[in-house]
Amino acid sequence: MKRVVLAFAIGCFGMMNAQIKFGVNGGFSSAVVSSKWDNLTQGYYVGLFSEIGIPGFAKVQPALNYVKIHDDSYIQVPVMMKFYFVPKVNIQAGPQFAFRMNDSSSSSKTNFGAAVGLGADLFSGLLIEARYAFQLNEAFKSPAGDKLPFNIFNVGLGIRF
């Protein structure tokens, strides 16, 4: 138990020395609410993010986005791990939550998913990224009661301050 507490304390101390940056992002958002890709809807997202550098080759990037797709709006909270295998290019993976702001009897208000993506740090704090999130819970159901996948694809630009 002492080793676990010591490891936790060392990890917290390391995070305190990590560099934290903040920024804004926005771009194109698209959602698929079926397994056949026949119900593709398009919209946009805007938001705020922070980026926490972890010693080595990774960063954690939690964000808070407002997503507007067709007549629906969501608060989207991705928490992405960014792994830099090539300088300025990253692979992203992590959980993503989406909270539906509109009332609908055919859906839950909370969507939980796993997201994967690719990003690049361009210049002067400018970044570009593309991310696809797969729904893991049963947020949408058809009128017959069948589960309908709700997957979101985001492509956007951001700027770090």
Rank of each mutant, 00 (worst) to 15 (best):
F140M: 14
F13H: 05
V116F: 05
N102G: 05
L136R: 07
V79E: 02
W37H: 08
N154P: 09
Y66F: 06
N111K: 08
G156S: 02
E129M: 10
A7R: 00
D71I: 08
P62S: 01
D72I: 11
A133E: 10
G43P: 07
D38C: 07
N39M: 10
R100G: 15
V79I: 09
F83Y: 15
A114W: 13
Q135L: 12
I91S: 07
N17R: 04
G158N: 03
A115K: 02
P55I: 06
I69K: 03
R100F: 10
I152V: 15
V67R: 00
S107T: 05
L40Y: 13
G156K: 03
E129A: 09
N151D: 13
V32R: 11
N111A: 10
L136Q: 13
V46H: 11
R131M: 12
K88D: 15
A63S: 01
S106Y: 15
V67Y: 07
F83P: 12
L148N: 11
G47L: 06
G94T: 01
Y44I: 11
M16E: 07
K141N: 15
D146E: 15
A18K: 00
G14N: 03
I152R: 10
C12L: 03
L122M: 04
V89R: 01
W37T: 08
V32F: 09
F99K: 00
L48D: 10
A115R: 00
L6N: 00
F123A: 08
M81T: 11
Y74A: 03
F83V: 10
V155W: 12
L126N: 12
M80H: 04
L6W: 04
A130R: 03
V33D: 14
D121R: 01
K82H: 04
D146M: 11
N65C: 03
F97V: 10
G125V: 06
K109A: 01
A144W: 14
E129V: 09
I10E: 00
F97H: 09
L48A: 12
I128E: 10
A120Q: 00
F22P: 09
F97I: 14
V46Y: 12
P62Q: 04
R100M: 13
V46R: 10
A120M: 05
Y66Q: 02
K21P: 08
I128F: 12
A139C: 14
K68E: 10
K141S: 15
Y45P: 08
Q42D: 11
L6Y: 02
S124F: 14
G113S: 00
Y44V: 07
G43C: 05
Y84M: 03
F134V: 15
V60C: 00
N25A: 05
S73R: 04
